[in-house]
Design a protein around this nucleic acid. Structure first.
Lengths: 206, 206
DNA sequence: CATTGTAGACCAAACGCTTGCTCAAATTCG
DNA sequence: CGAATTTGAGCAAGCGTTTGGTCTACAATG
């Protein structure tokens, strides 16, 4: 995850994700944190206002609706982590490294500094409007496609034995669940955790 | 899961879970289904009323609050599935069978006929009142204790290699996620799925 | 240099609606 | 009859959102 900040800067400068220093960005990151902590429905526009120091009504100067905030949190989160994933894969051509990278990047997406947003995407899917779902779905499909490509290759090479689509879903569950119990500085690092999930996927110790 | 209906009857007759034919039971099962489909917060008391044919006001004759309905859904679900698990373990003394039973029972709890309630317990935890959490937590600890006992034994015997507590959490994630993608009659049975999760846990094909 | 215009950010108040829940009266039933 | 149950109207609170207007910074104009 060495270059994850680098990519973030690139995406901010190219305008693909909102500058966290801008009012829009402040609202966005605050909202992501609150959505994660209390849930989307339990978070009121007034809550976001209080935490950002912006009055509730003024939030709607920056976003058309609360739903647009949720959609933006999800959208920018997947853009960011898709960027991280692609970049990480470029520098690791070996098959087993690529599988490990997938695990590692997703663990980082869920539990790293920008982990709130990715968690929100997983947990609050049902609260997204229909148009929102359509937008996010396209991005998610690209992300899942990368996973399946690598897993299929790994299956063919005998690195994993389970059917790729089932394995992905089981692993996705394991990974999505980690934020509920994993805490930094608790004797288990994200690297350690990557090892364990790798072992789960391949059946072999790393 | 042959005897799962049997145990349900026993628990109903002994009054440990609500009779589904009683007004309380009708409300309970309807609520569980709605909570699962739309989420607890998105489900209104009026929704439950409409589906049960009971007017909103009358719901509160059977339950003190909406929160009490949620708590009861969770509580009875864990009582039922804890009963199923204990019964199933009694008839399977071999270590490897017991591990497989744990997986199988939890998959059934999430995806079987009474799967709505168990899903609600996992997904709507944050929406439970503080007293509710305390009640459910005690029951959950008993359930998790059984898992850890078996996993520790399996670890000592070399059936699994990962640390029991980490393995349990990773498996819990996989299992909790299954309702989002698993559908009956889709070429993959719950038995097949049990095999896959077993393989995930042990690293060996069943 | 002073004035005016413009645009983004923000404020204060309130609107319309939904929510969980209450309650007195009516009804049903043992 | 009396107790349990159901009814339907309605309350108080909270929600997302709208509105009309102010403040500030800065560029254009005379």
């Amino acid at each position: 995850m060495e270059f994850s900040e680098e990519i973030r800067k690139e995406l901010i400068e190219s305008g693909k994700i909102t500058d966290p220093k801008s009012p829009r960005g402040v609202v966005l990151n605050t909202a992501a944190r609150l959505f994660r902590r209390k849930g989307y429905l339990q978070t009121t526009v007034r809550d976001i206002g209080r935490e950002t120091g912006i009055l509730p009504g003024s939030i709607f100067h920056h976003y058309r609706s609360k739903d647009e905030i949720l959609r933006t949190v999800m959208e920018e989160s997947i853009v960011l982590n898709l960027g991280r994933l692609k970049r990480a894969l470029e520098s690791r051509p070996a098959l087993e490294d690529r599988l490990r990278t997938l695990i590692s990047v997703e663990l980082y997406a869920m539990n790293g500094e920008t982990g709130e947003a990715w968690s929100v995407m997983v947990d609050e899917w049902r609260n997204l409007s229909e148009e929102g779902k359509a937008t996010i779905l396209r991005l998610r499909e690209e992300y899942e496609g990368i996973w399946l490509d690598v897993l299929r290759e790994a299956h063919q090479a005998g690195v994993v034995t389970m059917e790729p689509d089932i394995l992905r879903k089981l692993l996705a569950g394991s990974l999505h669940w980690t934020p509920t119990w994993f805490r930094h500085g608790g004797g288990l690092s994200l690297e350690d955790l990557t090892d364990r999930v790798w072992q789960l996927a391949t059946g072999h110790r790393p």
